[in-house]
């Protein structure tokens, strides 16, 4: 994509704020997923959307500065996390991908539900985020 030469102060300022709001909201959606609309798929997609917004209004360089690593790693890491969650239950003699949950008291936060579905969903989140970003940004980078 051709880079915009003009100085879009308005756009840049706005996008800086908006993208962080979107990012924060996406994290919220991810954690809310087990009990309210949201979850790994939606969270991951929204995070990806925030980064795509950043890319659209700034450029590749800025985005790479914000995300100084390879997105392929997200995909692999996510798959690994999701898979290991499944394997863990096998170590205790349960079938692959058996999930557990427990309500525990954590100081200052009150009663919190901890589930093994959360790391699994984290895996989903990372794969979706990684895949979406990889697809978009690979094409964007291809200027040849």
């Amino acid at each position: 994509m051709k880079q915009l030469k003009t100085n879009n102060v308005m756009l840049h300022t706005l996008v800086r704020i908006v993208s962080f709001v979107v990012l924060a909201f996406s994290i919220y959606l991810f954690f809310a997923g087990h009990n309210n609309p949201g979850g790994g798929f939606i969270g991951g997609l929204m995070t990806a959307a925030a980064f795509v917004l950043l890319y659209l209004s700034f450029n590749m360089k800025t985005l790479k500065k914000a995300l100084p690593f390879n997105f392929d790693l997200l995909i692999g890491g996510g798959l690994l996390i999701a898979f290991l969650t499944g394997v863990t239950s096998m170590l205790f003699g349960f079938p692959f991908l058996t999930q557990f949950f427990e309500y525990v008291q954590i100081p200052f936060m009150g009663e919190v539900e901890l589930t093994t579905a959360l790391p699994f969903d984290l895996g989903v989140y990372l794969v979706v985020l990684g895949a979406a970003l990889t697809i978009i940004l690979t094409i964007a980078e291809d200027d040849k």
């Binding site: 997923g33 087990h34 309210n36 609309p37 798929f41 589930t115 579905a117 699994f120 969903d121």
Partner: peptide, 23 residues
């Protein structure tokens, strides 16, 4: 599964293997 969002519970818990293969 300790979850209130049934769709999400189906995805990550009851049909976890499907989701794993899907990602």
């Amino acid at each position: 599964a300790g979850g209130y969002n049934i769709v999400n519970v189906v995805l990550v818990d009851f049909r976890g293997l499907d989701t794993l293969l899907e990602i």
